[in-house]
Nucleic acid binder design. Structure first.
Lengths: 202, 202
DNA sequence: AGGTTCGTTGTACAGCCTGTACAGCTTGCT
DNA sequence: AGCAAGCTGTACAGGCTGTACAACGAACCT
């Protein structure tokens, strides 16, 4: 009730550094090829040079750690560039940017995101947290498609639903993961998806 | 070394029945909404009315059980209809059948397949077993696309790689899973994918 | 009938994991 | 000085996979 008499500058900083180190270790561990050491709270603690109890103190649980990691990925993965996509005047151009932002995001931490997906059905609560992000993508897709309809003029309701689901599917991680091969660089995947989207929606 | 003096008719039958019951229980448990009881060897044993040790005796390990389940799904999911697709004289018709067979397969045990995917990065060995099946799909796609090229005549090498990856992606489970909503029946997904494939590859 | 084999079961154990409880320590802050 | 927040160690409960081993019973062959 009473306002905190504390400021806690240095302590907060130090704690945040620890949080960051823990998240970095978790990210690194999830990205390591098929988890030579299996992903676990103890491994994360060991790699970040911190006691296991500290991880629990900071994140509460495995699910908490994974959710925090998810948020940190979104911040660092270039999602802020999404605003640029919506600022485009041409609807097709906006969709192209939209696609590009997501392929870039999936690429930025591909192995980690792939591993995170595995925890989906292991922990239903975490699945919900991941589902929310997917809903954002759907909302964005809907806005862009509305804009496209106004620009070109085609009000079929059923086709709108198809278009929305298609764009969400095309910008999803599994699609990127299936198309990004060693012989096809990320920007080439972007181009491929953009062409496919024009054919699918046009 | 010496030839088995045993025939073991009834015993084999009885054991096979047990195997089937165990697999059915595993399938049912994986399909149960977000695993109210968590999936485990003990739960599988309990549901199939068998001792936990029996499951180990029959399948060796969790990975063995999952692989056997994967095979049983392929047998029961209509994969034998794949031959019909390759028997089509028209290349486009063959591709349409190819797509239809896979959407039907994914639909047949959607929840189970979705759950199986989660074990992919949990157990790298099992991931390999699942990857082999995906390679079959790729081989089939390649054959059909070769046929399509001979029929329409377009020998671009780079476009061939794109086409192959696209068809594999379109016939994959995540794509189906993203497109099959309560408002879109499985056969409608098939139609949507067939149209999309024609636009993507044509 | 008698002995063999195979499927099955029970118990016990090792090892790893998450998560909780709790006491104690260090360090920054007022 | 004294409080609070972050950090740590230990111990424990409970769950999981996987292995070892002994035992039982029924199908099986001769």
């Amino acid at each position: 009730m009473t306002p905190r008499p504390y400021r806690m500058q240095r302590r907060r900083e130090s704690a945040d550094e620890n949080r960051a180190r823990i998240l970095a270790a978790a990210r690194e561990l999830l990205a390591s090829p098929q988890g030579s050491p299996r992903f676990s709270m103890e491994e994360v603690a060991r790699r970040s040079g911190v006691a296991r109890m500290t991880v629990y103190y900071q994140f509460g649980s495995l699910r908490g750690l994974l959710e925090a990691l998810l948020d940190s990925l979104a911040s660092a993965g270039g999602m802020q560039h999404l605003a640029e996509a919506f600022r485009q005047s041409d609807a097709w151009e906006a969709i192209d940017r939209f696609i590009a932002v997501f392929t870039q995001f999936w690429e930025s931490d591909r192995l980690v995101i792939r591993a995170l997906g595995a925890f989906t059905s292991l922990d239903p609560d975490f699945a919900g947290a991941l589902g929310e992000r997917s809903d954002w993508r759907r909302k964005g897709a809907r806005v862009l498609l509305d804009r496209l309809v106004k620009q070109t003029g085609r009000p079929e309701r059923k086709e709108m639903r198809d278009a929305e689901d298609l764009l969400v599917m095309l910008t999803g991680f599994p699609t990127y993961d299936a198309l990004a091969t060693p012989k096809r660089r990320p920007d080439q995947v972007t181009g491929l998806l953009q062409r496919l989207a024009r054919r699918a929606l046009g």
